[in-house]
Amino acid sequence: MTYFLTQLANGLSYGLILGLIAVGFVIVFTSTGVLNFAHGSVLLTGAYLVAILHDPIGFWPAVVVGILGAALLGVLINAVLVRNLAEPNPGTAAILMLGVDILLLTELTRRIGNRVLPIGAPWGADVIAIGGVTLPTSRAIAAGVAVVVFALLWYLFARTDTGVAMRAAAADGDTASLMGIRLSRTGATGWALAGALAAIAGVLLASFPAPGVAPTLAISAFAAIPAWVLGGFDSVVGAIVGGLIIGVVTALAVGYEAELHVLGRGLGEVVPYAVMIIVLLVRPSGLFGRKEAVRV
């Protein structure tokens, strides 16, 4: 039982981090219609900045720089590249982001090389144990950070002008611009938010039990894609729930791999996608997604 609870606790905390990444996918998608395949390298950029800066300027200032850097990177990708597509549509934008991802990841891989850069987080490698259930301190903090961030996001979208404008623009950009809302501005805000969320997730993911920042960190953003799709493409709540589902399922699949050996080794890698495909079979628009309204 304690083993199960330990797996569950780990799964939930991992799921919350996935949620942070998946929400970034949702915000970029709803604010600019872009399927952001470069989200992983933006995440890596944020984590990389923290890894190289925590020594000279201290961990917390480095985190601030990392978050701002990733946010700025997102804004620049949108302003310089996405908005200048020769044929702007979701398909070409998605492929553009594949190109951006290749460029960023190649450059970061060249800089990092074979090293694993420590993230320098003050919580180190401690573990919390409550009644036999153990959880790395870093993961407990990650869960707390994620919950606070989600609360801030809720406040932004429900209570501020900027947030309401972003939701209006996402729901019907054409009409929103008739209200004087500048779609270029809501788009930039969306990319900045997504970049910041990715950087936060990057720092949390590079903390213990992970060894530090390595190019493979970018791939972790891919693990959030099932969470995003599961939640339904355009729903922030869906992305968070999707993250939790994928986190827990992954943790359980890894924790009970021995019992599930008939399904083969390395189950943790494939289970999120298997869950995603099963959900799509039943609900093509995801758990929280709106069905596309057909206009004739």
Binding site: V164, A165, R167, A168, A171, D172, T175, A176
Partner: peptide
């Protein structure tokens, strides 16, 4: 904006 409340619609305006 169908998913926004009446108040939020006015706010967007």
């Amino acid at each position: 904006f169908r998913d926004l409340t009446v108040e939020e619609n006015l706010r967007a305006g």
